[in-house]
Design a protein around this nucleic acid. Structure first.
Lengths: 195, 195
DNA sequence: CGCGACGTTGATTTGCCTCAACGATTGTGG
DNA sequence: CCACAATCGTTGAGGCAAATCAACGTCGCG
């Protein structure tokens, strides 16, 4: 069932006993969301850290001028939340919503603290998860400053071929930090001479 | 001495016994670096996570065209390293060097693992450190996509007034993702009408 | 003193945005 | 099941933010 992928995922980092798996299950829950449904809403408190068992979601920021800026996509085996909001239990700067109908495994804040006590290994596990998220964020910063839109698009394509097919183009544009119109022009240019 | 600020800093998150402090000292070291000296060099493996006891440093990436992109500054009580390289012990994507003569407390990778074993609390501590770094990185991504250079500069100024005075202007420009010439023009514009 | 590093200024160019219009596709209610 | 609206991608004209290039002033320092 839905927990299988999470267990397998965790086992890549730390190994869990049967008892620990039971504890884990008892302190998390499965959540189904439909397309376009909010998982986190900007301005509200982010209650859960979410593991994607199935589906596709996005995390984005709505700025003062009403423009959306996608900061992250997530498909199977990724995590998604507004970490700042979740960790500090303060209002979120980002919204998270589903691009496809999705299945999530949710960790509530207080239950996660309890999990840390009962299964200290998870402390390490989540440190590793956050490390990876941090590293990815650093890469994005560099990319956004040192490469033009065309290069960023090609890189995105190569790195997330699976994601590009699952999300509308205007969200990819938003992720790349450009307008949909301009992405369209980039695509034309690339198609004209391949790759 | 130099450890005082580190101990005080750690104690804000988790409290250490005298014994633990001794262990900590025995598994880290103090390093003095002079102005312009490398702490991490792009292409090499980042051997240490560094706590800044005194001084000012920068972390930057050198792209294929030879342009520098500053991703982070660090002054007293900040951490600086190429985390990706440090954590995976693989070649660094960034260089770190000193803008002022500085005093660092260095954590070597294998010693840090030993510290985790001897003082499990530190596992939590470093998780929190990385969380904060991650959150800051997220904010930078948003800013870089949703604000123009003038706004980013004013924000930088307000957030790090202490840092702006300690680093040359062209590095601030690099941090903001613009050319030194353009930053100069922004400054003129702002000076003309204050704020 | 003279050189090199740093900041400034102006002229020109360019990457990307805005706005507006138009197909294609999807979906929804009658 | 069709009609109409809404959503999404494309295309072109024009505009602006920021880059590039080149020249010059200033300051600290060997």
């Amino acid at each position: 069932m839905s927990y299988d992928s999470l267990i397998a995922y965790i086992n890549e980092y730390v190994s869990l006993t049967e008892d620990e798996i039971d504890t884990l299950k008892s302190l998390t829950r499965i959540k189904n969301v439909r397309k376009r449904q909010f998982v986190v809403e900007q301005g509200e408190i982010c209650r859960y850290e979410n593991f994607v068992a199935q589906g596709c979601l996005r995390c984005y920021h709505l700025d003062e001028e009403g423009h959306e800026h996608v900061v992250q996509f997530a498909v199977e085996n990724w995590w998604i939340a507004d970490l700042q909001s979740f960790l500090t239990q303060s209002p979120a700067n980002f919204s998270v919503d589903a691009i496809e109908p999705s299945v999530l495994i949710q960790f509530e804040y207080s239950d996660l603290q309890e999990l840390y006590e009962k299964i200290p290994k998870l402390e390490r596990f989540f440190r590793l998860i956050i490390q990876n998220a941090y590293i990815a964020a650093q890469q994005r910063i560099i990319g956004s400053y040192s490469k033009d839109a065309g290069k960023r698009y090609i890189e995105f394509r190569n790195r997330y071929p699976d994601i590009e097919k699952r999300v509308p183009q205007y969200m990819v544009a938003s992720y790349l930090g450009i307008t949909p119109e301009f992405l369209s022009k980039i695509r034309r240019r690339i198609a004209g001479q391949d790759t």
